[in-house]
Design a protein around this nucleic acid. Sequence first.
DNA 1: CTACTAAGCGGACCTCAGTCCGATTGGGTG
DNA 2: CACCCAATCGGACTGAGGTCCGCTTAGTAG
Lengths: 231, 231
Amino acid sequence: MDAAFDLPLLEPDGLERVDAARNRERILSAATRLFDERGAGCVSMDEVAEAAGVGKGTLFRRFGSRAALAAAVLSERERGFQEAFIRGEPPLGPGAPARARLIAFGEALLDTLEAHTELLLAAESGPERYSHPAHVVHRLHVTLLLREADPRCDAELLADTLLAALGADLFIHLRGLQGMSLQRLKEGWGELVGRTVPAIEPRSVDHAPTEPSAGAARTAAELAAAEPAEI
Amino acid sequence: MDAAFDLPLLEPDGLERVDAARNRERILSAATRLFDERGAGCVSMDEVAEAAGVGKGTLFRRFGSRAALAAAVLSERERGFQEAFIRGEPPLGPGAPARARLIAFGEALLDTLEAHTELLLAAESGPERYSHPAHVVHRLHVTLLLREADPRCDAELLADTLLAALGADLFIHLRGLQGMSLQRLKEGWGELVGRTVPAIEPRSVDHAPTEPSAGAARTAAELAAAEPAEI
DNA sequence: CTACTAAGCGGACCTCAGTCCGATTGGGTG
DNA sequence: CACCCAATCGGACTGAGGTCCGCTTAGTAG
Protein backbone atom coordinates (compact mmCIF):
# COMPACT_ATOMS: atom_id res chain seq x y z
CA MET A 1 0.00 0.00 0.00
CA ASP A 2 2.15 2.76 1.32
CA ALA A 3 5.28 0.89 0.38
CA ALA A 4 4.79 1.03 -3.38
CA PHE A 5 6.90 4.08 -3.88
CA ASP A 6 9.29 3.06 -6.62
CA LEU A 7 9.77 5.32 -9.59
CA PRO A 8 7.73 3.87 -12.43
CA LEU A 9 10.45 4.52 -14.97
CA LEU A 10 13.11 2.58 -13.15
CA GLU A 11 11.11 -0.45 -12.11
CA PRO A 12 8.67 -1.02 -14.94
CA ASP A 13 7.98 -4.69 -14.35
CA GLY A 14 5.84 -6.27 -11.68
CA LEU A 15 2.95 -3.98 -10.90
CA GLU A 16 2.38 -2.69 -14.39
CA ARG A 17 -1.04 -2.56 -15.90
CA VAL A 18 -1.42 -4.88 -18.87
CA ASP A 19 -2.18 -2.12 -21.35
CA ALA A 20 0.82 -0.20 -20.08
CA ALA A 21 3.07 -3.21 -20.56
CA ARG A 22 1.71 -3.81 -24.03
CA ASN A 23 2.35 -0.22 -25.02
CA ARG A 24 5.85 -0.28 -23.63
CA GLU A 25 6.63 -3.30 -25.76
CA ARG A 26 5.11 -1.71 -28.83
CA ILE A 27 7.08 1.46 -28.38
CA LEU A 28 10.35 -0.29 -27.80
CA SER A 29 10.03 -2.52 -30.83
CA ALA A 30 8.81 0.27 -33.07
CA ALA A 31 11.68 2.48 -31.99
CA THR A 32 14.19 -0.29 -32.51
CA ARG A 33 12.89 -0.93 -36.00
CA LEU A 34 12.79 2.70 -37.02
CA PHE A 35 16.22 3.44 -35.62
CA ASP A 36 17.63 0.50 -37.51
CA GLU A 37 15.92 1.40 -40.75
CA ARG A 38 16.63 5.08 -40.99
CA GLY A 39 19.24 5.69 -38.37
CA ALA A 40 18.42 7.33 -35.09
CA GLY A 41 18.42 11.08 -35.47
CA CYS A 42 16.32 10.84 -38.61
CA VAL A 43 13.37 9.61 -36.59
CA SER A 44 11.11 12.00 -34.74
CA MET A 45 9.23 11.12 -31.61
CA ASP A 46 5.94 11.68 -33.43
CA GLU A 47 6.93 9.01 -35.89
CA VAL A 48 7.80 6.56 -33.16
CA ALA A 49 4.48 7.21 -31.48
CA GLU A 50 2.59 6.72 -34.72
CA ALA A 51 4.47 3.55 -35.64
CA ALA A 52 3.87 2.16 -32.18
CA GLY A 53 0.20 3.03 -32.39
CA VAL A 54 0.19 5.09 -29.21
CA GLY A 55 -0.23 8.75 -28.43
CA LYS A 56 2.64 11.08 -27.92
CA GLY A 57 1.73 11.53 -24.29
CA THR A 58 2.10 7.82 -23.68
CA LEU A 59 5.47 7.77 -25.36
CA PHE A 60 6.81 10.52 -23.15
CA ARG A 61 5.15 9.14 -20.05
CA ARG A 62 7.07 5.93 -20.43
CA PHE A 63 10.44 7.15 -21.59
CA GLY A 64 10.71 10.76 -20.53
CA SER A 65 12.78 12.03 -23.41
CA ARG A 66 14.15 11.26 -26.79
CA ALA A 67 17.59 10.60 -25.38
CA ALA A 68 16.21 8.25 -22.78
CA LEU A 69 14.34 6.29 -25.42
CA ALA A 70 17.51 5.85 -27.42
CA ALA A 71 19.28 4.80 -24.27
CA ALA A 72 16.58 2.27 -23.53
CA VAL A 73 16.90 0.72 -26.98
CA LEU A 74 20.65 0.65 -26.56
CA SER A 75 20.35 -0.97 -23.19
CA GLU A 76 18.31 -3.87 -24.50
CA ARG A 77 21.21 -4.71 -26.72
CA GLU A 78 23.73 -4.39 -23.96
CA ARG A 79 22.14 -7.09 -21.85
CA GLY A 80 24.55 -9.70 -23.14
CA PHE A 81 27.52 -7.51 -22.40
CA GLN A 82 26.54 -7.08 -18.78
CA GLU A 83 26.05 -10.80 -18.40
CA ALA A 84 29.50 -11.35 -19.84
CA PHE A 85 31.46 -9.17 -17.48
CA ILE A 86 29.44 -10.08 -14.42
CA ARG A 87 29.16 -13.84 -14.78
CA GLY A 88 30.96 -14.77 -18.00
CA GLU A 89 34.27 -16.46 -18.68
CA PRO A 90 37.61 -14.90 -17.76
CA PRO A 91 39.28 -12.66 -18.55
CA LEU A 92 36.08 -10.63 -18.84
CA GLY A 93 34.23 -12.47 -16.11
CA PRO A 94 35.37 -13.35 -12.60
CA GLY A 95 38.46 -15.49 -12.17
CA ALA A 96 41.13 -13.41 -13.85
CA PRO A 97 43.23 -10.81 -12.04
CA ALA A 98 41.58 -7.43 -11.69
CA ARG A 99 43.86 -5.64 -14.08
CA ALA A 100 43.30 -8.18 -16.84
CA ARG A 101 39.56 -7.98 -16.30
CA LEU A 102 39.69 -4.23 -16.51
CA ILE A 103 41.52 -4.34 -19.81
CA ALA A 104 39.13 -6.93 -21.18
CA PHE A 105 36.20 -4.85 -19.99
CA GLY A 106 37.41 -1.79 -21.85
CA GLU A 107 38.05 -3.70 -25.02
CA ALA A 108 34.64 -5.28 -24.92
CA LEU A 109 33.02 -1.92 -24.27
CA LEU A 110 34.87 -0.46 -27.22
CA ASP A 111 33.48 -3.29 -29.32
CA THR A 112 29.93 -2.49 -28.32
CA LEU A 113 30.54 1.18 -29.02
CA GLU A 114 31.79 0.25 -32.46
CA ALA A 115 28.70 -1.83 -33.05
CA HIS A 116 26.19 0.83 -32.02
CA THR A 117 27.77 4.09 -33.06
CA GLU A 118 24.61 5.07 -34.85
CA LEU A 119 22.44 4.92 -31.78
CA LEU A 120 25.02 6.58 -29.60
CA LEU A 121 24.64 9.80 -31.53
CA ALA A 122 21.04 10.05 -30.45
CA ALA A 123 21.44 8.85 -26.91
CA GLU A 124 21.99 10.92 -23.84
CA SER A 125 25.08 13.04 -23.98
CA GLY A 126 25.21 15.43 -21.09
CA PRO A 127 25.86 15.06 -17.40
CA GLU A 128 22.68 12.95 -17.20
CA ARG A 129 24.59 10.30 -19.03
CA TYR A 130 26.34 9.40 -15.79
CA SER A 131 23.10 8.64 -14.05
CA HIS A 132 22.03 6.12 -16.62
CA PRO A 133 21.61 2.62 -15.14
CA ALA A 134 24.04 1.12 -17.63
CA HIS A 135 26.72 3.59 -16.67
CA VAL A 136 26.03 3.05 -13.01
CA VAL A 137 26.60 -0.66 -13.45
CA HIS A 138 29.80 -0.06 -15.38
CA ARG A 139 31.04 2.32 -12.71
CA LEU A 140 30.32 -0.11 -9.93
CA HIS A 141 32.09 -2.87 -11.78
CA VAL A 142 35.17 -0.78 -12.46
CA THR A 143 35.18 0.62 -8.95
CA LEU A 144 35.23 -2.85 -7.41
CA LEU A 145 37.96 -4.04 -9.75
CA LEU A 146 40.07 -1.00 -8.93
CA ARG A 147 39.58 -1.45 -5.23
CA GLU A 148 40.63 -5.05 -5.61
CA ALA A 149 43.74 -4.19 -7.58
CA ASP A 150 44.78 -1.26 -5.45
CA PRO A 151 42.93 -0.75 -2.18
CA ARG A 152 44.72 2.51 -1.55
CA CYS A 153 43.47 4.40 -4.57
CA ASP A 154 40.45 6.66 -4.79
CA ALA A 155 38.49 4.01 -6.61
CA GLU A 156 35.21 5.90 -7.13
CA LEU A 157 36.89 8.87 -8.70
CA LEU A 158 39.33 6.85 -10.72
CA ALA A 159 36.55 4.65 -12.02
CA ASP A 160 34.63 7.55 -13.50
CA THR A 161 37.84 9.04 -14.77
CA LEU A 162 38.87 5.89 -16.58
CA LEU A 163 35.37 5.34 -17.90
CA ALA A 164 35.50 8.80 -19.41
CA ALA A 165 38.16 7.42 -21.71
CA LEU A 166 35.53 4.99 -22.99
CA GLY A 167 32.78 7.58 -23.33
CA ALA A 168 30.57 7.60 -26.39
CA ASP A 169 31.36 11.17 -27.38
CA LEU A 170 35.06 10.61 -27.20
CA PHE A 171 34.74 7.37 -29.11
CA ILE A 172 32.82 9.01 -31.90
CA HIS A 173 35.35 11.78 -32.07
CA LEU A 174 38.43 9.58 -32.10
CA ARG A 175 37.04 6.82 -34.26
CA GLY A 176 34.92 8.80 -36.67
CA LEU A 177 36.25 12.30 -36.89
CA GLN A 178 39.91 11.57 -36.20
CA GLY A 179 39.81 8.24 -37.94
CA MET A 180 41.75 6.20 -35.41
CA SER A 181 41.46 2.44 -35.74
CA LEU A 182 39.59 0.33 -33.22
CA GLN A 183 42.81 -1.55 -32.65
CA ARG A 184 44.62 1.63 -31.73
CA LEU A 185 41.95 2.62 -29.26
CA LYS A 186 42.15 -0.77 -27.62
CA GLU A 187 45.89 -0.52 -27.33
CA GLY A 188 45.52 2.94 -25.88
CA TRP A 189 43.14 1.61 -23.26
CA GLY A 190 45.45 -1.25 -22.42
CA GLU A 191 48.32 1.18 -22.08
CA LEU A 192 46.32 3.50 -19.86
CA VAL A 193 45.14 0.76 -17.55
CA GLY A 194 48.59 -0.77 -17.58
CA ARG A 195 50.11 2.42 -16.29
CA THR A 196 47.35 3.27 -13.89
CA VAL A 197 46.62 -0.02 -12.21
CA PRO A 198 49.24 -2.20 -10.51
CA ALA A 199 49.75 -5.57 -12.21
CA ILE A 200 49.45 -7.86 -9.23
CA GLU A 201 46.96 -7.12 -6.53
CA PRO A 202 48.92 -6.58 -3.32
CA ARG A 203 48.68 -9.80 -1.28
CA SER A 204 47.81 -8.71 2.20
CA VAL A 205 47.89 -4.96 2.18
CA ASP A 206 47.71 -3.39 5.61
CA HIS A 207 44.26 -1.91 5.21
CA ALA A 208 41.60 -1.18 2.68
CA PRO A 209 40.45 2.42 3.15
CA THR A 210 36.86 2.13 4.34
CA GLU A 211 35.38 -1.10 3.11
CA PRO A 212 36.72 -3.98 5.16
CA SER A 213 36.19 -6.86 2.76
CA ALA A 214 37.89 -7.21 -0.59
CA GLY A 215 38.52 -10.21 -2.77
CA ALA A 216 38.01 -11.76 -6.15
CA ALA A 217 34.58 -13.12 -5.33
CA ARG A 218 33.37 -9.76 -4.12
CA THR A 219 32.88 -8.13 -7.45
CA ALA A 220 30.59 -10.77 -8.81
CA ALA A 221 28.65 -11.05 -5.60
CA GLU A 222 28.00 -7.39 -5.10
CA LEU A 223 27.06 -6.90 -8.70
CA ALA A 224 24.82 -9.93 -8.73
CA ALA A 225 22.88 -8.39 -5.87
CA ALA A 226 22.33 -5.05 -7.53
CA GLU A 227 22.16 -6.53 -10.92
CA PRO A 228 18.92 -7.43 -12.65
CA ALA A 229 19.26 -3.80 -13.73
CA GLU A 230 16.49 -3.06 -16.17
CA ILE A 231 19.20 -0.88 -17.64
CA MET B 1 39.25 37.89 -54.74
CA ASP B 2 39.25 34.19 -55.30
CA ALA B 3 41.50 33.60 -52.33
CA ALA B 4 39.03 34.70 -49.67
CA PHE B 5 37.73 31.27 -48.95
CA ASP B 6 37.96 31.00 -45.16
CA LEU B 7 34.93 29.96 -43.22
CA PRO B 8 33.38 33.13 -41.83
CA LEU B 9 32.67 31.54 -38.48
CA LEU B 10 36.22 30.54 -37.77
CA GLU B 11 38.01 33.65 -38.93
CA PRO B 12 35.70 36.50 -38.02
CA ASP B 13 38.26 39.27 -37.89
CA GLY B 14 39.99 41.00 -40.75
CA LEU B 15 37.71 41.11 -43.75
CA GLU B 16 34.50 41.57 -41.84
CA ARG B 17 32.03 44.21 -42.86
CA VAL B 18 31.66 46.92 -40.25
CA ASP B 19 27.99 46.25 -39.60
CA ALA B 20 28.79 42.58 -39.23
CA ALA B 21 31.48 43.32 -36.68
CA ARG B 22 29.21 45.66 -34.79
CA ASN B 23 26.47 43.05 -34.61
CA ARG B 24 28.88 40.35 -33.49
CA GLU B 25 29.97 42.57 -30.64
CA ARG B 26 26.41 43.40 -29.70
CA ILE B 27 25.40 39.78 -29.67
CA LEU B 28 28.35 38.67 -27.63
CA SER B 29 27.92 41.32 -25.01
CA ALA B 30 24.16 40.89 -24.80
CA ALA B 31 24.57 37.15 -24.41
CA THR B 32 27.22 37.57 -21.76
CA ARG B 33 25.05 39.94 -19.79
CA LEU B 34 21.92 37.80 -20.03
CA PHE B 35 23.74 34.62 -19.16
CA ASP B 36 25.21 36.29 -16.12
CA GLU B 37 21.94 37.80 -14.98
CA ARG B 38 19.62 34.87 -15.32
CA GLY B 39 21.89 31.96 -15.83
CA ALA B 40 22.40 30.36 -19.20
CA GLY B 41 19.65 27.88 -19.89
CA CYS B 42 17.04 30.39 -18.78
CA VAL B 43 17.78 32.56 -21.77
CA SER B 44 16.26 31.81 -25.15
CA MET B 45 17.89 32.68 -28.43
CA ASP B 46 15.00 35.01 -29.22
CA GLU B 47 15.77 36.96 -26.10
CA VAL B 48 19.43 37.23 -26.98
CA ALA B 49 18.52 38.46 -30.44
CA GLU B 50 16.13 41.01 -29.04
CA ALA B 51 18.54 42.24 -26.39
CA ALA B 52 21.27 42.53 -28.98
CA GLY B 53 18.95 44.42 -31.29
CA VAL B 54 19.46 42.06 -34.20
CA GLY B 55 17.26 39.56 -35.99
CA LYS B 56 17.24 35.90 -35.21
CA GLY B 57 18.68 35.11 -38.60
CA THR B 58 21.71 37.24 -37.89
CA LEU B 59 22.22 35.57 -34.55
CA PHE B 60 22.26 32.13 -36.09
CA ARG B 61 24.31 33.24 -39.06
CA ARG B 62 27.08 34.32 -36.76
CA PHE B 63 27.02 31.59 -34.15
CA GLY B 64 25.33 28.63 -35.72
CA SER B 65 23.65 27.28 -32.62
CA ARG B 66 22.78 27.92 -29.05
CA ALA B 67 25.56 25.65 -27.84
CA ALA B 68 28.09 27.41 -30.01
CA LEU B 69 27.04 30.78 -28.67
CA ALA B 70 27.52 29.58 -25.12
CA ALA B 71 30.88 28.21 -26.10
CA ALA B 72 31.86 31.52 -27.65
CA VAL B 73 30.99 33.39 -24.49
CA LEU B 74 32.90 30.85 -22.45
CA SER B 75 35.88 31.17 -24.68
CA GLU B 76 36.15 34.90 -24.20
CA ARG B 77 36.61 34.27 -20.54
CA GLU B 78 39.15 31.58 -21.10
CA ARG B 79 41.54 33.88 -22.89
CA GLY B 80 43.54 34.48 -19.75
CA PHE B 81 43.82 30.79 -19.07
CA GLN B 82 45.31 30.13 -22.48
CA GLU B 83 47.80 32.93 -22.01
CA ALA B 84 48.78 31.43 -18.69
CA PHE B 85 49.62 27.96 -19.86
CA ILE B 86 51.20 29.07 -23.10
CA ARG B 87 53.36 31.95 -21.95
CA GLY B 88 52.82 32.31 -18.21
CA GLU B 89 54.95 31.47 -15.22
CA PRO B 90 55.95 27.92 -14.32
CA PRO B 91 54.72 25.46 -13.32
CA LEU B 92 51.81 26.27 -15.63
CA GLY B 93 53.86 28.01 -18.28
CA PRO B 94 57.08 26.89 -19.94
CA GLY B 95 60.10 26.17 -17.79
CA ALA B 96 58.87 23.44 -15.49
CA PRO B 97 59.18 19.74 -16.29
CA ALA B 98 56.43 18.38 -18.51
CA ARG B 99 54.77 16.33 -15.83
CA ALA B 100 54.54 19.21 -13.43
CA ARG B 101 53.10 21.42 -16.15
CA LEU B 102 50.55 18.78 -16.97
CA ILE B 103 49.41 18.58 -13.38
CA ALA B 104 49.26 22.34 -13.09
CA PHE B 105 47.32 22.53 -16.33
CA GLY B 106 44.70 20.11 -15.07
CA GLU B 107 44.32 21.91 -11.78
CA ALA B 108 43.94 25.25 -13.51
CA LEU B 109 41.40 23.80 -15.91
CA LEU B 110 39.44 22.40 -12.99
CA ASP B 111 39.45 25.88 -11.48
CA THR B 112 37.99 27.41 -14.60
CA LEU B 113 35.37 24.66 -14.75
CA GLU B 114 34.46 25.44 -11.17
CA ALA B 115 34.14 29.11 -12.02
CA HIS B 116 31.90 28.64 -15.04
CA THR B 117 29.77 25.64 -14.22
CA GLU B 118 26.68 27.59 -15.08
CA LEU B 119 27.69 28.25 -18.65
CA LEU B 120 29.01 24.77 -19.15
CA LEU B 121 25.54 23.36 -18.80
CA ALA B 122 24.43 25.27 -21.86
CA ALA B 123 27.55 24.79 -23.92
CA GLU B 124 28.27 22.16 -26.48
CA SER B 125 28.16 18.66 -25.10
CA GLY B 126 28.40 16.11 -27.84
CA PRO B 127 31.14 14.89 -30.08
CA GLU B 128 31.27 18.41 -31.58
CA ARG B 129 32.77 19.49 -28.33
CA TYR B 130 36.09 18.03 -29.40
CA SER B 131 36.23 20.21 -32.48
CA HIS B 132 35.90 23.38 -30.51
CA PRO B 133 38.92 25.67 -30.88
CA ALA B 134 39.47 25.79 -27.14
CA HIS B 135 39.59 22.04 -26.91
CA VAL B 136 41.87 21.84 -29.90
CA VAL B 137 44.32 24.15 -28.19
CA HIS B 138 44.15 22.14 -24.98
CA ARG B 139 44.73 18.95 -26.87
CA LEU B 140 47.72 20.31 -28.71
CA HIS B 141 49.21 21.57 -25.47
CA VAL B 142 48.75 18.26 -23.69
CA THR B 143 49.98 16.30 -26.68
CA LEU B 144 53.21 18.23 -26.81
CA LEU B 145 53.76 17.90 -23.09
CA LEU B 146 53.17 14.17 -23.27
CA ARG B 147 55.51 13.78 -26.18
CA GLU B 148 58.12 15.66 -24.25
CA ALA B 149 57.71 13.55 -21.14
CA ASP B 150 57.51 10.23 -22.92
CA PRO B 151 58.37 10.20 -26.62
CA ARG B 152 57.36 6.58 -26.93
CA CYS B 153 53.71 6.95 -25.96
CA ASP B 154 50.76 7.45 -28.29
CA ALA B 155 50.56 11.11 -27.38
CA GLU B 156 47.57 12.12 -29.50
CA LEU B 157 45.37 9.39 -28.17
CA LEU B 158 46.56 9.73 -24.61
CA ALA B 159 46.00 13.48 -24.71
CA ASP B 160 42.35 13.14 -25.58
CA THR B 161 41.98 10.34 -23.11
CA LEU B 162 43.42 12.35 -20.26
CA LEU B 163 41.46 15.43 -21.25
CA ALA B 164 38.31 13.36 -21.03
CA ALA B 165 38.98 13.22 -17.31
CA LEU B 166 38.66 17.00 -17.27
CA GLY B 167 35.53 17.12 -19.41
CA ALA B 168 32.72 19.44 -18.49
CA ASP B 169 30.08 16.72 -18.27
CA LEU B 170 32.18 14.60 -16.00
CA PHE B 171 33.04 17.60 -13.86
CA ILE B 172 29.41 18.53 -13.41
CA HIS B 173 28.57 14.98 -12.52
CA LEU B 174 31.36 14.46 -10.01
CA ARG B 175 31.28 17.90 -8.48
CA GLY B 176 27.58 18.64 -8.54
CA LEU B 177 25.69 15.37 -8.53
CA GLN B 178 28.18 13.26 -6.62
CA GLY B 179 29.31 16.13 -4.47
CA MET B 180 33.04 15.52 -4.60
CA SER B 181 35.22 18.40 -3.48
CA LEU B 182 37.33 20.40 -5.88
CA GLN B 183 40.34 19.40 -3.82
CA ARG B 184 39.57 15.73 -4.31
CA LEU B 185 39.23 16.14 -8.05
CA LYS B 186 42.57 17.89 -8.20
CA GLU B 187 44.22 15.15 -6.21
CA GLY B 188 42.64 12.58 -8.49
CA TRP B 189 44.07 14.36 -11.51
CA GLY B 190 47.49 14.55 -9.92
CA GLU B 191 47.32 10.87 -9.10
CA LEU B 192 46.25 9.97 -12.63
CA VAL B 193 48.98 12.00 -14.29
CA GLY B 194 51.48 10.78 -11.74
CA ARG B 195 50.79 7.21 -12.68
CA THR B 196 50.48 7.77 -16.37
CA VAL B 197 53.38 10.05 -17.12
CA PRO B 198 57.00 9.36 -16.18
CA ALA B 199 58.43 11.82 -13.67
CA ILE B 200 61.66 12.75 -15.38
CA GLU B 201 61.71 13.21 -19.10
CA PRO B 202 64.15 10.63 -20.45
CA ARG B 203 67.48 12.43 -21.06
CA SER B 204 68.59 11.26 -24.45
CA VAL B 205 66.15 8.61 -25.42
CA ASP B 206 67.19 6.65 -28.50
CA HIS B 207 64.57 8.13 -30.75
CA ALA B 208 61.47 10.20 -30.72
CA PRO B 209 58.86 8.44 -32.91
CA THR B 210 58.26 10.79 -35.83
CA GLU B 211 58.95 14.34 -34.78
CA PRO B 212 62.70 14.86 -34.61
CA SER B 213 62.88 17.83 -32.27
CA ALA B 214 61.66 17.90 -28.70
CA GLY B 215 62.42 20.23 -25.86
CA ALA B 216 61.00 22.57 -23.31
CA ALA B 217 60.90 25.53 -25.68
CA ARG B 218 59.01 23.59 -28.30
CA THR B 219 55.63 23.64 -26.69
CA ALA B 220 55.51 27.38 -26.35
CA ALA B 221 56.85 27.94 -29.83
CA GLU B 222 54.45 25.65 -31.62
CA LEU B 223 51.51 26.93 -29.69
CA ALA B 224 52.51 30.53 -30.19
CA ALA B 225 52.39 29.93 -33.91
CA ALA B 226 48.94 28.41 -33.95
CA GLU B 227 47.78 30.50 -31.14
CA PRO B 228 45.92 33.78 -31.49
CA ALA B 229 43.03 31.31 -31.55
CA GLU B 230 39.84 33.31 -31.68
CA ILE B 231 38.61 30.44 -29.59
C1' DC C 1 27.73 61.31 -57.52
C1' DT C 2 25.43 57.14 -59.49
C1' DA C 3 25.09 52.53 -60.40
C1' DC C 4 26.05 47.93 -59.28
C1' DT C 5 26.80 43.68 -56.56
C1' DA C 6 27.41 40.67 -53.13
C1' DA C 7 27.50 40.21 -48.27
C1' DG C 8 24.62 40.88 -44.60
C1' DC C 9 20.12 41.39 -42.38
C1' DG C 10 15.78 40.09 -40.07
C1' DG C 11 11.49 38.26 -39.07
C1' DA C 12 7.97 35.07 -40.77
C1' DC C 13 7.84 30.26 -40.80
C1' DC C 14 8.72 25.31 -39.83
C1' DT C 15 9.77 21.31 -37.12
C1' DC C 16 9.91 18.88 -33.20
C1' DA C 17 10.65 17.84 -28.23
C1' DG C 18 8.04 18.01 -24.37
C1' DT C 19 3.47 19.33 -21.51
C1' DC C 20 -1.47 19.29 -20.17
C1' DC C 21 -5.82 17.77 -19.22
C1' DG C 22 -10.24 15.68 -20.27
C1' DA C 23 -11.67 10.99 -21.79
C1' DT C 24 -10.91 6.10 -21.12
C1' DT C 25 -10.24 1.73 -19.06
C1' DG C 26 -8.06 -1.78 -16.01
C1' DG C 27 -8.97 -4.24 -12.09
C1' DG C 28 -10.22 -4.53 -7.35
C1' DT C 29 -14.54 -4.15 -3.96
C1' DG C 30 -19.15 -4.82 -1.98
C1' DC D 1 -22.68 -8.01 -11.62
C1' DA D 2 -22.41 -3.06 -10.83
C1' DC D 3 -19.49 0.42 -9.12
C1' DC D 4 -15.56 3.21 -8.34
C1' DC D 5 -10.98 5.08 -8.25
C1' DA D 6 -6.80 5.64 -9.93
C1' DA D 7 -3.59 4.78 -13.42
C1' DT D 8 -3.27 5.34 -18.19
C1' DC D 9 -4.12 7.22 -22.71
C1' DG D 10 -3.71 10.43 -26.54
C1' DG D 11 -3.88 14.39 -29.25
C1' DA D 12 -4.17 19.38 -29.08
C1' DC D 13 -1.05 22.90 -27.57
C1' DT D 14 3.27 25.44 -26.38
C1' DG D 15 7.78 27.12 -26.70
C1' DA D 16 12.22 27.21 -28.53
C1' DG D 17 15.81 26.08 -31.86
C1' DG D 18 16.88 26.56 -36.48
C1' DT D 19 15.89 27.76 -41.68
C1' DC D 20 14.49 30.58 -45.70
C1' DC D 21 14.21 34.18 -48.72
C1' DG D 22 13.11 38.82 -50.15
C1' DC D 23 14.99 43.40 -48.59
C1' DT D 24 18.82 46.47 -47.22
C1' DT D 25 23.27 48.32 -47.19
C1' DA D 26 28.43 48.43 -47.22
C1' DG D 27 31.95 48.83 -50.33
C1' DT D 28 33.56 49.44 -55.27
C1' DA D 29 33.89 50.75 -60.02
C1' DG D 30 33.12 54.20 -63.45
